[in-house]
Structure formats: C-alpha cells, structure tokens
Nucleic acid binder design. Structure first.
Length: 423
RNA sequence: GGAGAGGUGGCCGAGCGGCUGAAGGCAUCCGCCUGCUAAGCGGUUGUAGGGGUUAUACUCUACCGAGGGUUCGAAUCCCUCCCUCUCCGCCA
C-alpha cells in the first residue's frame, strides 16, 4: 500500500510508477474520491464537536433539574445528520481502501524500464556455464531412470503438477533443506517453523490478495489460504507490531512447502519439476530501517547466491525491469541457474525489496527511540532457494557419462556420505 | 465439538449511561533531594486522522478485542463475530 499522503501530494510520481509497472488505474478518480471523503470527515467532526458540547450542556441542565427538552430535540436532528454523513464516509472509505489495495508499489529509481522479461538486465555471473553437456537429457528422464522421481505417482495423488520424490531423491530434497537452513542460520537468520495455512488478512498484508486470488488455494470452510511462499507467514509474524529499533535488522529463515494453483500455465513450462502446484522452498525475510533496505537487499542476494556457490552450481543474477516486477516489489533480483538438459535458465530465487509497501498493509512499524514516533519498516525477502529447480539443475548439471549423478561435496555429509545418485 | 471465565493504556488493575483518554499501582523519562549501589518528593509518558505552523505550539475527532444496535450522550446496556484461559470430549 502506498502512503495516502504521497498519493495526494505527488500524484505524478505515483502515476509514473503505475505506468512503469504497466498497470491500469484511474488515479484521478481515486483522488476525487479522497477529496470528497476528507470534506465529509471535516463536516462530520464539526457536528460531533457540536454534539459533545451540547451533550455536556444537557448533562449540566439535568443535574440542575432544569428543562432540556428543546436542545434535546435539536440534538436528535444533529444525531441523524451525523449518522447519514458517517454512513457515506463509511461507504467512500471502503471504496478507497479497496482501490488502494490494488495500486501497485512504485519501482525504485534504479529499476530499468521495460515491458517484458527481454528487458531484464543481467547483473553478473558466477561459475563456468558448460553449454555442451555430456548428454543433454531433461531432469525428469534422469530422475525417473534413477528412480528418484515419480511423476506418474504425483499425478495419481494430486493430478497434474504434483510430484513424488522417491528414495534418494526424497533424501536429496531433505538434505538440501537442511544445508540451506544451516547456511542461513550461519548468516545470522533466525530459523522459524510457521503455519502453512494463513488468514486472508495475512495474504492482504504481503500483497498476494486481492490481486492474485485466482492463484491461491483457498479453504473456504475455515477462511484460510494455503501459503504460496513462506514470505506470507514469516512477514506477517510482526503484523500490527511496533518493533524496537535496536532489534533491527530482523532476519528470519524458514522452510515451507509452497502451494500455487498456477492458473493459466500449460505446455513445456509445466513439465517435470519446473512448475508444480506444491514445492518446497527455504525463504529469507528481513525487517529493516528504510535507510538500510537497499544495502540489505544486496546482502540478501549474496546470502542466496552463497547457497549456489556451496553447491557448486553456476548462476547468473538478473535485475527485473519495471513491468516484470511483482505487484508489491520496488526492486527485485532473480537468480537463475542453467539447466544443460533443458538448455534454459531456471529461476531459483527472487530477492525483493518491498520498501514500506507490505509494512503499511500489515502495519509493521518500528521506533528509533522511546520518545519517537513509530515509522514503517522496510520488508525484504528472497528464496534461498526453491528446491525443485535446484534438484533439476543438479540432476542435469552433474550427470556423468555413466548415467550417475554426482552429489555436490557440501551435500555429501547431509546424504549420509553418499557421493552419487545411481540406479 | 460441549460447558464456563475473560478480553481496558508499556505492564498489572478499577471503572453507578454523562466533566473517564480513562482511578490506583508498576514501569518510563525529566527535575529536586539525599553521599552511597536504594529511597523520598514533584512532574512526565498512547495511537490514528483532520485543521493549523517553516517546524513547534495549539486545536478538533476517533479509539477501552472487532463489527453492528439503543441513546441527546456508551468502556459502561443489547446483538453478532473473533481471540485467550480452565474443565470435558475427540484426535495426530
């Protein structure tokens, strides 16, 4: 959510931001409604003041046992007026709130303008990309051959888009989760284990709702949503709170499964492990002071990259252009690994700074000192990392001529000493 | 799921429908006092929105779990919902 005052005082900046994100929004209509609301509030408060004054007068008269019938009747009319005006205020206010929730965050000045992923900017690479693997084979073929991946079982259980990992594949997944969490703990993140079902308010807080309702699994009976990422519960853990400024920057990491309906996805995109309805992910979330958030974004990115370095997986870092940014993000880096079997790059992490956009929605603030007013924190999050695509990369990248898959050294201890996945 | 109790300021805890933004205590911060690791005295301390100011000051409105209702007027009465606690039941 944007600051209502900023929208009011600097509408052009907001208009420009909305344009850069490629979103349609009637800002003038919004501003007119806001103007109308404020004049109604002024009028309502004027009448309430009058009512308060006269009510005291009535009280006084009654104590003195004098007659108050006359002003009492007059006040009845005032009371009716207040009710009418307040009803209108309520309606307009609700309209404005609803509208405000669908205004996207404004891209940071450093974000390149662009209309599609082709306009994203490669920031840097790490490691050698071998464009010619020993035998280009997609991970699902490797995985099924080794018996670590069972796509048929997945679709039996949940339909298309669900997967089953078997034996050493399941172990590999568990090992990766542990390795990632251990790395992030060492980097200074507190590990959390959080609910996978959350309330609508949480989903609004981080910005998934109301815009992306179609992409969410919803348990209507209980009004709960399955989380699309641990970002939602972890960020909302401080909703409504005022954090102690001394405690910032707060860093959390959490493992969770992620549930996404992926409405509208189809074809090649959905094959194998690339796009599934349920996948595991280790997430990092930060709460920080506004002046530090862009430094924290860089270190967050580094923290995610470190996982790939430990796993000896080459990657590149992409800065998203304005229209490729998510609704809530002000700036975002994607980390992509190269899958030699598929001959394409896979997004394994997104590291974003939301500035105060989520903090306003979820009302997360901090106080610099006891005497000072609370300010909104800046929130950031990044995957560290998404499991299935990392597994896909490892399968395709570490495939040996004999058909075995080499397990990255750092992972071996987590695999009970196992060095290869083999038949 | 059933029965009961309760949700008030940073915390504890009062609160006959009218001068209660809210007693009292603790804590906080400021000052005074006192030569001893403390006590005493006085004062201070919420959030949001509007108006106002260069910024303060100032001022208005709202807020006692949430939302409705009754009333000239609600923390206080009525309804609905949420949450917490205790007991019982059920269950991994």
């Amino acid at each position: 959510m944007l600051d209502r005052k900023v929208i009011r005082k600097d509408p052009e900046r907001v208009r420009e931001g909305i344009r850069k994100k490629g979103v349609e929004f009637d800002l003038d209509g919004f501003l007119e409604l806001d103007e109308r609301l404020r004049s109604l509030i002024t009028e309502s408060e004027r009448l309430k003041h009058e009512r308060n004054v006269v009510s005291n007068e009535i009280s006084r008269l009654k104590k003195e046992k004098k007659d108050a019938t006359e002003i009492l009747t007059a006040m009845k009319q005032t009371s009716v007026s207040i009710k009418e005006i307040d009803a209108e205020i309520k309606t307009i206010s609700a309209q404005l709130d609803e509208l405000a929730l669908v205004i996207p965050n404004i891209p940071h000045d450093s974000v390149p303008y662009g209309t599609c992923p082709d306009h994203n900017v490669e920031v840097r690479r790490w490691g050698e990309i071998d464009e010619q693997p020993c035998s280009p084979m997609p991970h699902w073929e490797i995985g099924e051959k080794l018996g670590v991946l069972d796509l048929a079982a997945g679709s039996t259980l949940g339909g298309s888009g669900f997967i089953v990992l078997r034996g050493d594949g399941a172990l590999l997944s568990r090992a990766l989760i542990n390795l990632m969490l251990d790395i992030h703990r060492r980097q200074g993140y507190e590990e959390l284990s959080v609910p996978y079902l959350v309330t609508r308010d949480c989903m609004i807080g981080t910005g998934q709702l109301p815009k992306l309702e179609e992409d969410m699994y919803h348990c209507e009976r209980d009004g709960l949503f399955l989380i699309p990422t641990a970002e939602v519960p972890v960020t909302n853990i401080h909703r409504g709170e005022i954090l102690d400024g001394d405690r910032l920057t707060v860093r959390y990491t959490a493992f969770s499964p992620c549930f996404r309906r992926e409405a509208g996805s189809y074809g090649q995109e959905t094959k194998g492990l690339i796009r599934v309805h349920q996948f595991d992910k280790v997430e990092m979330v930060k709460f920080t002071q506004p002046e530090l958030s862009y430094d924290e974004l860089e270190s967050l990115l580094d923290d995610a990259c470190e996982v790939l370095q430990v796993l000896e997986i080459p990657y590149r870092v992409i800065e998203l252009c304005s229209m490729d940014l998510s609704f809530s993000a002000a700036k975002c880096y994607d980390i992509e690994t190269f899958a030699p079997g598929l001959q394409r790059w896979l997004e394994v992490s997104s590291c974003s700074n939301f500035e105060d956009f989520q903090a306003r929605r979820a009302n997360i603030r901090f106080r610099r000192a006891r005497s000072q007013k609370p300010e909104f924190v800046h929130t950031l999050n990044g995957s560290g990392l998404a499991l299935p695509r990392v597994i896909a990369t490892i399968l395709e990248l570490n495939l040996t001529p004999t058909g075995k898959v080499r397990i990255p050294k750092a992972l071996v201890p987590y695999m009970g000493g196992m060095e290869y996945l083999e038949e």
